[in-house]
Design a protein around this nucleic acid. Structure first.
Length: 452
DNA sequence: TCTGGGGTCCTAGGACCC
DNA sequence: TCTGGGGTCCTAGGACCC
């Protein structure tokens, strides 16, 4: 089994596409007042910036000149797709765990030499090919006899690491590690384990199955008992079906007004419906998620008699659940989700058509979706966000560094240019427009990164 | 200027059914 | 004329992952 973990992935893509940021601290995540860090570059980690930390805290820790960027998920997905394709050349059994992580069952391809030397060479060549194909994004690779050992291995020498755990050596690698390195041991389980004197995986292995079941529940307890012994027969599942679709939003300020919140629900329901329609799914259970002013979080759900992918049905249900739950004290977050998904959808009116005919139905509802999204007039500088790709008709391609007071600051550079100049423009400059992510690949077949 | 957003899985109680 | 039992569905919440 091989596990790949791309290093500080979002930040690495930003540094690739923005030459002026190479070698400098970069933080990617929410850039608003209530944002948190998704990824910090290794330069930013040196100042204490960490994933899941509030962006405000990361700003306090990092020096001025640190880039704080919102995410460019289209760019991350495109790079992730390139990497996943390389993995699929190794084996038909590839399980992406996220944009930046995947498991590969090397044994599913009979051509591989699965000796320690053989898999080491596979890992080495894979890392080279990834760096070359992505314009320099690096990854850490772990290889072992199970998903557990592969994942542990990829974590041991980050960044740009390669660790092979030879068969038979699992426990000597595993037992000295802190229990928190096991997947499934988060803050709550770690705290309870510490209370019974368990700090390392070796400590965990000394506990009985009934003790662990009492501590963590039946499934989780049995899972911990097995993992502590390096017993792990979890298979690589190439395509885990989607189980739910949701959208949620934390507001800049807490909201109380039912009309305002209702419009937020409409817009979130429209986004969820659009994604359901795009994937030809619909679902029966609508869930509303609320986070109150004091951070207490609750969900309310209703299962409908028929599957739906209709934004109005979703919105109406969610609005009803909001009225029942109440907005007392103010809400900092609302979320709308649909679960209980099935492939054929659109309620019983259309179900017959969809099942019976090749033509997958005129999607009238899809065309109507935008009507539910109110086009709110934003302050002119709010059109721009840090990290965003833009193009200026005279100055060329660049990205947004900052904004405010009716102005926007843009650095004009791209993945294949030298660090470029900065210009401050009027936020309503008609020559400035949002742009697609830049192309980092060497389309003309020129020298690749590895030649440097 | 504390604490995101997208998910998954598990547990537990009550309703309901045979 | 004390209280079956097992399975499924629904709802809610919690833990966890990246």
């Amino acid at each position: 089994m091989l596990h790949l973990d791309l290093d500080a992935f979002f930040a690495a893509v930003e540094q690739r596409d923005k030459p002026s940021l190479r070698g400098r601290p970069v933080v990617v995540g929410g850039v608003g007042g209530r944002g948190v860090v998704a990824t910090a570059s290794y330069e930013a980690r040196a100042f204490g910036a960490r994933s899941a930390m509030s962006t405000a805290e990361a700003r306090r820790r990092c020096p001025s000149g640190t880039a704080f960027l919102g995410g460019r998920f289209a760019a991350y997905r495109a790079t992730s797709d390139v990497v996943m394709s390389l993995l699929r050349e190794l084996s038909p059994l590839v399980e992406p765990a996220s944009l930046d992580e995947a498991y590969v069952d090397l044994a599913a391809d009979e051509g591989h030499d699965l000796s320690v030397e053989g898999v080491t060479e596979i890992g080495r060549r894979l890392k080279e090919r990834i760096a070359a194909a992505t314009g320099g994004v690096t990854g850490s690779v772990g290889i072992g006899t199970s998903k557990l050992m592969a994942k542990i291995g990829s974590d041991l020498q980050k960044p740009d690491g390669l660790v092979v755990v030879p068969p038979g050596r699992e426990l000597e690698v595993l037992h000295p590690l802190p229990v928190t390195r096991l997947g499934g041991v988060g803050p709550a389980t770690a705290e309870r384990l510490h209370q019974i004197g368990v700090k390392t995986v070796g400590d965990l292995a000394a506990k009985s199955l009934p003790d662990l079941v009492a501590l963590a529940g039946r499934a989780h307890g049995a899972g911990l008992f097995a993992l502590a012994r390096a017993e792990d027969d979890r298979a690589v599942v190439p395509d885990r079906g989607v189980k739910s679709v949701s959208h949620e939003e934390t507001f800049e300020r807490d909201l109380t007004d039912l009309d305002v919140l209702g419009r937020e629900i409409d817009s979130m329901a429209a986004r969820v419906a659009k994604r359901l329609q795009a994937s030809a799914f619909s679902g029966r259970t609508v869930t509303l998620k609320l986070r109150r002013y004091d951070f207490t979080t609750l969900t309310r759900s209703q299962t409908l008699p028929h599957s739906t992918d209709d934004s109005r049905t979703i919105a109406t249900t969610a609005r009803r659940l909001l009225v029942e739950a109440g907005t007392q004290g103010g809400l900092r977050l609302l979320g709308v989700g649909v679960s209980g998904l099935s492939v054929y959808a659109q309620g019983d009116l259309f179900a017959e058509d969809l099942l019976g005919e090749a033509d997958p139905a005129p999607e009238a509802t899809a065309e109507e979706a935008p009507e539910a999204v109110p086009e709110v007039e934003l302050p002119v500088e709010r059109r721009w966000w840090p990290g965003q790709d833009v193009r200026h008709e005279e100055l060329g391609a660049g990205w947004v560094w900052g904004r405010g007071l009716g102005r926007v600051t843009v650095r004009f550079e791209g993945p294949r240019t030298a660090p470029g100049p900065v210009r401050t423009l009027a936020a309503d400059d008609p020559l400035l427009t949002p742009a697609d992510p830049p192309d980092w690949s060497q389309a003309g077949g020129g020298p690749l990164q590895e030649d440097r």
